[in-house]
Amino acid sequence: MDDIFGIPAPLLFGQLLLGLINGAFYAMLSLGLAVIFGLLNIVNMAHGAQFMMGAFCAWMLLAWAGIGYWWALILSPIIIGFTGIVLEKLFISKLYKLDHLYGLLLTFGLALIIEGVFRNEFGSSGLPYRIPPELSGAWDLGFMFMPIYRGWVVVAALILCLATWLIIEKTRLGAYLRAATENAALVQAFGVNVPRMVTLTYGFGVALAAIGGVLAAPIYSVNPQMGSNLIIVVFAVVVIGGMGSILGSILTGFALGIVEGLTKVFWPEASATVIFVIMAIVLLARPAGLFGRA
């Protein structure tokens, strides 16, 4: 078998594919962040906690109500999205007139509280959640063993990302949203209920995080820290892509997943830092991010 940079080609292809799968999670989470930041101007630090709540919600539905994976995939985002709406109404809506920093601090505080409550209730070792029987098993691709579930994650993430992008860029509703971010007062003058639209947008962003959580539950340990491990990387993705740029966050999510996957082959110890190195370089060269408008 041929070698590429001293690494056997099959191994390299395998890592590219795995990078794409991890990129799917980054893309899904950074998409939610980008939507919320783009339309609400809130840096949603609670996004990781909401991702975790999505996974826990799937577990609770199964353990307490016997509701399986597929229903959880629909119900969990609705339930967690609703908690997001409540949060927005109670707290976040008070901060739109203030500096970004206040929103960041508030959501960071909320994330710590939410994670603390879950840790007290469920401990830190995590809870078991099985891969649904329809998606268990794997394909032997020759160069690697490809679990069917991972393939499903990539497909689901691509569909979600594409759908969100289409809604915001190509529909009338999306046009209202984008207009409201440019000039809320004017859009309101045309008879659009802007505060409600903003509330629903936050709920939608949170629901995206929750779907990510449900998709992650069968493959990652369902524990209270699962979101905070991921969220820092996802923030870096958003910064690299350009704050608020939807397409940017999707593309950057997948691309950085691949970069990280390759780093795990060539220099595994650096795999946790490589994304931040890229972030630093991007910030120096293009402070608005790769796809951002300065």
């Binding site: 056997p8 990652y220 795990k264 082959v265 110890e269």
Partner: peptide
Amino acid sequence: TVRHPLGNTDFSSFLVQAQS
């Protein structure tokens, strides 16, 4: 041998290396 940072979430990459 492959070394991963503490609190790593995704092990697929390392597992595939181990497998190969």
